[in-house]
Design a protein around this nucleic acid. Structure first.
Length: 114
RNA sequence: CGACCGGGUUGGACAGCCGCGGGGGGAGGCCGAAAGGCCCCCCGUGAGGAAAGUCCGGGCUCCGCAGGGCAAGGAUAACGGGUAACGCCCGCCGGGGGUGACCCCAGGACCAGUGCAACAGAAAGAUACCGCCGCGUCCCCCCAUUGGGGAAAGGAAAAGCAUCGAAAUGAGUAAGCUUUGCCGCUUGCGGCGAAGCGAACGAUAUGGAGCUUGCUUUGCCGUCCCAAUCGGGGGCCCCGCCGGAACCUAAGUUCCGGUGGGGAAAGGAGGAACAGCGGAGCGAAUGAGCUUUGCCGCUUCUGCGGCGAAGCGAAUGAUACGAAGCUUGUUCCGCAUUCCCCAAAUGGGGCCCCGCCGGAACCCAGGUUCCGGUGGGGAGAGGAGAAGCAGCGAAAUGAGUGAGCUUUGCCGCUCGCGGCAAAGCGAAGGAUAUGGAGCUUGCUUCGACGAGGUAAGGGUGAAAAGGCGCGGUAAGAGCGCACCCGGCCCAUGGAGACAUGGGACCGCUGUAAACUCUAUCCGGAGCAACACCGUGUGUGGGACAUGAGGCCGGCCCGGCCGUCCCCAAGAGGUGGCUGGAUCCCGCCGGCAACGACGGGACUAGAUAGAUGGCUGUCAAAACAGAACCCGGCUUAUAGACCCGAUCGCGUG
RNA sequence: CCGGGUGUAGCCCAGGGGUAGGGCGCUUGCCUUGGGAGCAAGAAGCCGCGCGUUCGAAUCGCGCCACUCGGA
């Protein structure tokens, strides 16, 4: 976690929701430049997905995916990842593939990676 | 061995690598003047039995604190205990379920009052439909009430259609007025033009007050007829004529029937008064016993006994008072008419009652009184439900008796009378005979109806008037008795709910998770509480304002205070924050919940919210994630283990 | 964290102890040349779930579930 922080302010979330995000069956990803040299990552796991244990598991997996792949992300972005309801049944490898493909579509992955 | 019951424990384990939140340590690195901050390293620690739902109770914090009363609202509910407290827990009582271990119960009061009990059923806390029982009525007439029918005129009403049409609105128009432009001169007047104002008139317009008027329809009221009710009352007395019967010559008297006349009494709906029935309620008195207390005696505390006083205690309940109610009785009102006169054509006149119409007075209407017109009326009744048996019983029949008469035969003589015999006739009366018109006669049975008595029985229903038996009765009934059930009182046992026993008293439906009543409890808000620091800042602006407003979630007293909004958008840090009614072990008290004592332990504290990813072995594995804390409750939950008991089967 | 409301036919709603109704929609028939409108008839319900109180529960009580509103 050399250059990342968690995103907490509600108005930044709302500003990102106003942009057009990238989506597939499991996740939705919003990204926007924040004119700093650090990334701010926010996670949204709504109450519709299930009770607290289920939501915690999804959130911890998403946080772990970013931690393991932090070096492959470009810097200076605000990122919000929203979990959709089918993400509850997906295992860790499926979530990783979905996360990285959305990040590539959004153009926030480094070019030389992969 | 199987099934089942109760209680308790546990809630994936192990290993490796990379990571996360707190805490402690470091001689390391970077920044900084320092305090210190960041990075790195090491050690140790880190979700639950329900962390969930937020259903109760409490701590804690803030507000109010001078609190009080009333009302409302909410909650709880056998009894005793535990607890800081509770709606929780334990024990016990009562009720229910299970063969049993055991389980379940929101379990105060329906004699304080109110409400509800659909459908069915005669009837749903109070009745009487059927039934049972005894009594009365059954015919005719009048009145009243109800229902039906009829229709000429009538009354009031409703609806529909048509019709008349007030107020109000006001299209439009005019005299006139005001202002102004131009022209003329007499200089403040006139003429011409423009604009505005202006109606009391007012339309083939709008409008629609009036209980306007007319027609139609509908049902209602009264008049007329019929029926029903089994509602109220009456069917009585006198006289004339005719007929019959009895006594009898007849008159006359009595009875019966027919016919005509006269007189008397009562008469409905409804109302009033009095009396009677009724008996909700009130509650004198008695009262085993209980409680408190005074004095005396005994007695160590303390208790016991005696005497006295006060209070409580009757579910029973006298006398008196006495509400509702009554298909009860009497009286009064309603209430007047039961027609009158002339006359002999069955006509005329008068009086009274009722309906309708018109007019007058009072009058909104309705109604009352009077006058006039018109229509109607001014009484009637004749034989007691059906059947059977019995009784009484008229006419008629006439067995038998029989004075006497007739005929015939025989005998006698006084010769037309007597005697004897036979046959026939012959009774007013008249039978323990026949007969049977009839009888408001008696009894029995049956039918219909009525007013009572009764609550044994009645296909219903969740629930049927305490259950069952015997006696008793017109039929019946706790009406009486025995047993049982329940309530109440008393005694004994128990800490109490309650249990058991006794009683000279009583027989009350269910529902309060229906309103309600009784007892007890509840000041409000919640860690986004609250305190401090800072962004950022001020004696800013506005509204209301001391008889006002705000707070104490309603009101009254009382207390306290200026209150609210805007500029104003967003939101940070620190504390609160985890050592506590805490957990574990031992022992003691207690049936238990729990409590006392001794020893030991410290075990998350985040602030968008920490436990994840990958690999291997075993196992297949649930429900599920702290957010101030604690005690409970409720809900979700796979599997494993332990302890104690019950039932069944088998074996010994 | 605290408090309130709602759940009834496909949709919107009544009904507040005695076998559940209205409107729209749906189906069938009539009407029309045909459609719409109109007329007539009909179907459709575990009254959110469970346990209780009661003779009897959509209704009353308790516990859950879902949705929704308000306050701090």
């Amino acid at each position: 976690m050399q250059f990342s922080a968690s995103l907490k302010q509600n108005h930044i979330f709302r500003r990102l929701y106003a942009t057009s995000g990238k989506a597939n069956g499991l996740l939705v990803l919003y990204a926007r430049r924040n004119h700093t040299d650090r990334n701010r990552v926010g996670l949204t796991v709504s109450k519709k997905l299930g009770h607290a244990v289920v939501r915690n598991r999804v959130r911890r997996r998403l946080r772990e995916i970013y931690r393991l792949n932090e070096s492959r992300f470009r810097r200076g972005f605000d990122i919000v990842v929203v979990a959709r309801s089918r993400a509850v049944e997906a295992d860790f490898s499926q979530l990783t593939a979905a996360y990285l493909s959305l990040a590539k579509k959004a153009g926030i992955l480094l070019e030389d990676s992969q």
